[in-house]
């Protein structure tokens, strides 16, 4: 028997008013898998990601993450979200707190750790992203790449079962992208299940288990990176891959 997928989304629809953004998306993600979601802007990939932890409320469909029915009104959504880390394009660090403060807030308020225990776990998480020496800096004193790594630390400190990355390097200067990808690669090596929406095709090629191509609210094609990038079967995939590889 195949093991239960960690993420199991079925027939997910999302309407924003008259706009039909997701038109019945199915996505399964297995444990320790890194799934890369690509597609033109407006294809619904970010919306899909945001539906997975219910930052966006799907209009219909079902989403089960780590055995928890995310759309069941009886589900304690705050409890469920602890197990789903999310990293945003614009970092969204809390500007009034230090790096350590950012990482420990949910540890204390949600996971119920004491301050000392939260600090210990928080420092360990910062260590993992290579920023142990920046624990007492505020976001304003950190570079974009460092801020994004703190944001990753903020999520992994809670020991999530799956991590969602929403264009994590799109807001970064090119020379800062590498440090963030490096952290993502080491996360992957530690066995983290990851769903990544990104345009970093090089990273997708050598780190992803599977690439999912979305267009117009639907998954058009998916498969191993080599297959999607070298021998796409769908015209739309071919056109998109051709466009991004010209740059």
């Amino acid at each position: 028997m195949k093991p239960q997928p960690i993420v199991d989304a079925r027939a997910v629809h999302k309407h924003f008013g008259a706009l039909h953004v997701l038109k019945g998306v199915d996505l399964k993600v297995a444990e320790r898998e890194l799934v890369f979601v690509i597609g033109p802007s407006g294809s619904g990939k970010s919306t899909l990601l945001r539906c997975l932890n219910r930052l966006e409320e799907p209009s219909s469909g079902s989403i089960v993450v780590d055995g928890i029915d995310m759309l069941d009104p009886r589900t304690d959504i705050n409890h469920a979200r602890q197990r789903i880390g999310m990293v945003f394009q614009s970092f969204n660090l809390y500007p009034h707190m230090t790096a350590l403060g950012n990482v420990t807030l949910a540890l204390r308020k949600v996971a119920g750790k004491s301050r000392a225990e939260a600090d210990r776990l928080g420092r360990a998480a910062l260590e993992r992203v290579g920023l142990a020496d920046r624990a007492d800096h505020t976001p304003g004193q950190l570079s974009g790449g460092q801020q994004q790594r703190v944001a990753i630390a903020r999520s992994i400190a809670l020991e999530p079962r799956v991590m969602l990355f929403d264009e994590p390097t799109s807001a970064l200067d090119p020379e800062l992208v590498g440090s963030v990808l490096e952290v993502m690669r080491s996360l992957r090596e530690s066995g983290m299940t990851m769903v990544v929406v990104s345009h970093e095709m090089g990273f997708a090629r050598n780190a992803a288990d599977r690439v999912v191509f979305m267009d117009d609210g639907l998954i058009v094609e998916q498969g191993p990176p080599a297959a999607i990038f070298e021998t796409p079967t769908q015209d739309r995939t071919r056109a998109f891959i051709g466009q991004i590889q010209r740059h």
């Binding site: 930052l55 705050n78 979200r81 602890q82 999310m86 945003f88 807030l105 949910a106 944001a151 809670l158």
Partner: peptide, 9 residues
Amino acid sequence: EASRSTGLS
């Protein structure tokens, strides 16, 4: 969103 995604109410 960042705060809610880490489980804060």
